[in-house]
Nucleic acid binder design. Structure first.
Length: 795
DNA sequence: CTAGGGTTAG
């Protein structure tokens, strides 16, 4: 019986033309003078062809090699093996060719595969992660009496390991009559590939035990070091370094070991050592440069990373690779340095690397993070090849730029194009649901994540917790938090922040204390979440206490963001002067955002005098961003200085800052209904406005009076009341009152902060219409019930 | 040996 042909995932290449291969007459005439029937001559010719074949392969010219091979009248096993070997080393694209050639070899009864064939076809299977083909080849090898061959077994271990079949790999390994360092390395590298630190370490120790003790070689270290880097196992990394020096391993494979070492140091945060290893390397390649540049970027040392990138370019373009550009682009993205980013774009185009997928994805992400979402979209459309990463980058780009609805469209397009979403895609998409407070979409995404088996992933759980919290289901957030298999610092921070926006300061504090019991160290973000949770609950004294604890007990130096939270805490709590004093005492110059927090509170507490002072500060610093223009203009309006208010708005317009219109939306049966102030585009507008008018009549009876200080424009008093009455949040709530049955909570989301008048009106609405109303604004949750709001006066 | 997309804060 003929052996079964191995399966290949890719379409096998056509088998080379076999006997009788009528050699083209012209070719024969050119290549030979003697008659072809001379056996001696044939042998010579074959030898020459084999030499030529090896020569092409040595020069890496596989096309020529294949061409020559196809013309060989009578290829022997050696010729097959040479080409199979060459294919098997060239990555997945050529691995399919190797398997096809092997299949042809099986059909060619005159030269059966031998012990030089099997290891290389197995290597090709490993590149393709084709277990079925691998098992078939294993059977062929066993039939050829090679089941215990060192090379066959090692290749088989490599294949099983790559496919995460640890038990069969170990079985082959233990059945081997003898094991050399390469076999041990295959086991160790397999464990390292899957991040199995303890298994890999045990391999390392065991190989050095017993009478057949083997010393780790350069390959061992090169497999081991990335694992140590991932674990931030600096001490072990250092001993590996020492060992490599003692064993003179740095001489033979200086580039590989050196690069792995410097990468390990960089990932452990030891840039000084990384740099020293780098400087000491006599030979560097493109990977070395990528590793050192990437190391500085990962540690946040962007300027030095750019410096290294320039050093690299100073040596010519020989070391330039998509990888190093990707790291540099990441630095641009995090610094929002569009200038350098564009230069890198040009550099990529000039060096012909712009069609590289990695480089394209980095560019796309850089533009999206810089806020140039149109550029990013254009780039995406132009990309010849797109993968999961490209789609995910665009999804998160839209979310980051506040276009959550567009993110869903990209996601749908991705599915239509049969590109499979992975963990990162879903982690990008779920915040879109959170942003829209689209609970139905969120639940759908949750379901999809469960179906795809991603539900236990920490980052997925974190995103889901945040989504449920922002959709008003803090209980569901806590459920996920309680059952998730592993929690990281983001999980704790997300949960604390979730309690914060719900005004549950006590719960946030309790969770923070619990964190210490779980041996989880709080970070800078934890305290921002905690202090803002206190701020939303009016726990001013506690917030102040945490701020001091942060520096003195936890050794975290306050950043600008912490000062913003503190000013918000003090000012929102009514301690405006103390907040002002606090800003004065800051060790650094206060940011516009710090003053903005104070200004917002001045507005809430209607402290015009201080507000004017703060407004002057903000004007001096330059308002930077729409929010402060709006606050500034509001301040002047509230003080009755409408000319100045108008002036601010004109400057805002001139500078190109668009105020995003106040927009509120409500999800009914999975569809979102959005409203802007005075909006009459909704089909049920007449009913909605009628309902609002009715409500106004009812609440006026209860003593409500419009607080027209929240109207920005210079209007007649009655007009002002109208402008207030039709604020977007009121429209959305009225629509909710009309469409939802009385037992349902009305959940409305607003992109800006709820104004003071709306806050009062909604309290009354909850009373006269006997409804539970939740409004999520840009800041927090407001739960209105029986004429009260959960936030009391702290909104 | 390196590298692209992702979750928390105001």
């Amino acid at each position: 019986m003929r052996p079964r042909l191995p399966d290949t995932k890719l379409k096998p290449a056509a088998a080379p033309p076999r006997r009788p291969p009528p050699p083209p007459a012209a070719a024969r005439l050119l290549s030979t003078a003697a008659p072809p029937s001379d056996p001696c001559h044939l042998q010579q010719q074959q030898q020459q062809q084999q030499l030529d074949l090896d020569d092409h392969i040595a020069r890496g010219d596989l096309t020529r090699a294949r061409h020559l091979f196809d013309r060989m009248p009578d290829p022997d096993a050696r010729a097959y093996n040479s080409l199979i070997r060459a294919y098997s080393w060239r990555g997945p694209a050529h691995a399919a060719g190797a398997l096809a050639l092997y299949a042809a070899m099986l059909r060619d009864a005159r030269c059966p595969p031998n012990k030089y064939t099997f290891p290389f076809v197995l290597k090709a299977c490993s590149a393709l992660q084709d277990l079925r083909a691998g098992r078939a080849i294993h059977r062929h090898a066993a039939r050829a009496g090679l089941h215990a061959d060192l090379f066959v077994c090692t290749a088989l271990i490599d294949l099983y390991m790559k496919c995460a079949r640890f038990v069969p790999a170990a079985a082959v390994f233990h059945a081997m009559p003898a094991r050399d360092a390469v076999a041990w390395n295959a086991m160790l590298a397999g464990y390292a590939l899957h991040g199995m630190y303890h298994h890999a370490l045990e391999c390392l120790l065991r190989m050095q035990e017993g009478c057949a003790s083997l010393r780790p070689n350069a390959s061992t270290l090169v497999a081991l070091l990335p694992l140590l880097a991932q674990q931030s196992a600096l001490c072990q990394g250092k001993s590996v370094h020492a060992y490599s020096v003692r064993a003179s391993l740095h001489d033979k494979d200086g580039v590989l070991v050196g690069t792995a070492l410097l990468d390990m140091y960089a990932k452990c945060g030891e840039l000084l050592y990384a740099r020293r290893v780098f400087e000491a390397m006599p030979i560097r390649n493109d990977v070395t440069w990528s590793a050192i540049i990437g190391g500085f970027v990962v540690c946040g040392r962007m300027t030095e990373a750019f410096g290294l990138f320039k050093d690299m370019l100073a040596q010519g373009l020989g070391f330039l690779s998509p990888t190093s550009v990707a790291s540099a682009l990441r630095a641009c993205a995090s610094l929002a340095d569009l200038h350098i980013g564009k230069q890198l774009h040009v550099l990529l185009a000039k060096s012909g690397l712009h069609s590289d997928l990695t480089a394209g994805n980095s560019l796309l992400s850089m533009y999206a993070k810089a806020g140039l979402i149109d550029e990013a979209t254009a780039l995406f459309d132009e990309m010849a090849a797109k993968d999961t990463v490209s789609y995910s980058a665009l999804v998160s780009g839209y979310v980051q730029n506040g276009m959550a609805d567009a993110a869903f469209l990209v996601f749908r397009k991705m599915q239509a194009c049969n590109v499979q979403p992975d963990v990162a895609t879903m982690v990008s998409l779920i915040p879109a649901c959170a942003h829209l407070a689209a609970l139905q979409h969120g639940k759908c995404s949750h379901g999809s994540v469960i179906v795809r088996g991603m539900a236990p992933e920490t980052s997925i759980c974190n995103a889901l917790m945040d989504m449920y919290a922002k959709c008003g289901r803090i209980g569901l957030s806590r459920q996920i938090f309680d059952v998730m298999p592993a929690r990281d610092i983001v999980s704790w921070n997300t949960m604390i922040a979730g309690y914060g926006i719900h005004g549950l300061g006590k719960e946030a504090t309790a969770l923070f204390l619990d964190m210490n019991n779980h041996a989880c160290e709080p970070d800078g973000v934890t305290f921002i979440c905690l202090i803002s949770a206190c701020s939303h609950s009016g726990l001013v004294t506690e917030g102040k206490r945490w701020f001091h604890m942060m520096a003195h007990k936890y050794g975290i130096t306050p950043r600008m963001e912490h000062y913003i939270s503190m000013v918000d805490l003090l000012a929102r709590g009514g301690f405006l002067d103390e907040a002002y004093q606090f800003i004065q005492s800051m060790p650094m110059k206060a940011d516009v955002r710090v003053w903005g927090a104070l200004l917002a509170a001045c507005r809430v507490h209607k402290n015009i005098d201080l507000g004017k002072q703060v407004a002057r500060m903000i004007q001096k610093l330059g308002p930077e961003g729409t929010g402060n223009f709006v606050l500034l203009s509001n301040m002047f309006s509230a003080a009755g200085r409408f000319d100045e208010a108008a002036e601010v708005r004109i400057i805002q317009k001139e500078k190109g800052f668009k105020k995003s219109p106040g927009c509120s939306w409500i999800e009914i049966n999975g569809s979102l209904h959005a409203f802007i102030g005075g909006d009459r585009s909704h089909p049920r507008s007449p009913e909605i406005y009628q309902e609002l008018d009715n409500i106004l009549v009812d609440i006026n009876k209860l003593g409500y009076q419009a607080d027209t200080s929240f109207v920005l424009q210079d209007l007649e008093e009655e007009e002002k009341e109208k402008a207030l009455l039709y604020h977007s949040e009121k429209l959305a709530i009225a629509f909710g009152v009309l469409t939802l049955s009385e037992d349902k909570t009305i959940f409305v989301t607003k992109n800006l902060r709820v104004c003071g008048d709306c806050h009062t009106v909604i309290k009354y609405m909850s009373l006269v219409r006997r409804r539970d109303i939740i409004v999520r604004d840009a800041n927090r949750f407001h739960h209105f019930k029986n004429g009260q709001c959960s936030c009391g006066d702290f909104w």
